[in-house]
């Protein structure tokens, strides 16, 4: 599996978490993701995800005039979105724990076998 494929479901959750913390617009979201280290993904990928999350009513958007000039679409989390974020967090920790267990055990086994 390539990183991009693996990322898709994970990005969803990260977007929800960022939006929960603060109302943001698209470019801000991409910047935040970049700051957190998600560097090699095309920033535009967030828009299809945002469209879908709006359809599923996890996020809502409002058009607001920004100080810079153009009207911007700001996203905020709905109640349904908060629930989804909780579910994602749970799934993620579970997955993370399992993967860590596998990697820790198997790689240390290999080391023992190698010696």
């Amino acid at each position: 599996m390539s990183t991009t494929q693996m990322m898709k479901g994970i990005l969803d959750g990260c977007l929800l978490a960022i939006i929960k913390n603060k109302e943001v617009y698209g470019y801000e979201l991409a910047e935040k993701l970049g700051e957190y280290g998600f560097l090699n993904f095309s920033e535009g990928t967030i828009y299809p995800l945002l469209l879908r999350m709006q359809k599923e009513q996890f996020v809502t958007s409002t058009l607001r005039k920004s100080t810079a000039g153009p009207k911007r679409k700001y996203y905020s989390l709905t109640e349904k979105g908060e629930e989804e974020l909780e579910r994602f967090t749970e799934r993620w920790y579970h997955l993370q724990r399992n993967v860590n267990n596998v990697l820790n055990h198997e790689t240390s086994n290999q080391k023992e076998l190698g010696e």
Binding site: Y25, G26, Y27, A30, E43, G44, Y47, L51, P70, K71, R72, K73
Partner: peptide
């Protein structure tokens, strides 16, 4: 809407 958003981006 999506065109405006992408343009801004």
């Amino acid at each position: 809407e999506i065109i405006e958003e992408l343009k801004d981006h």
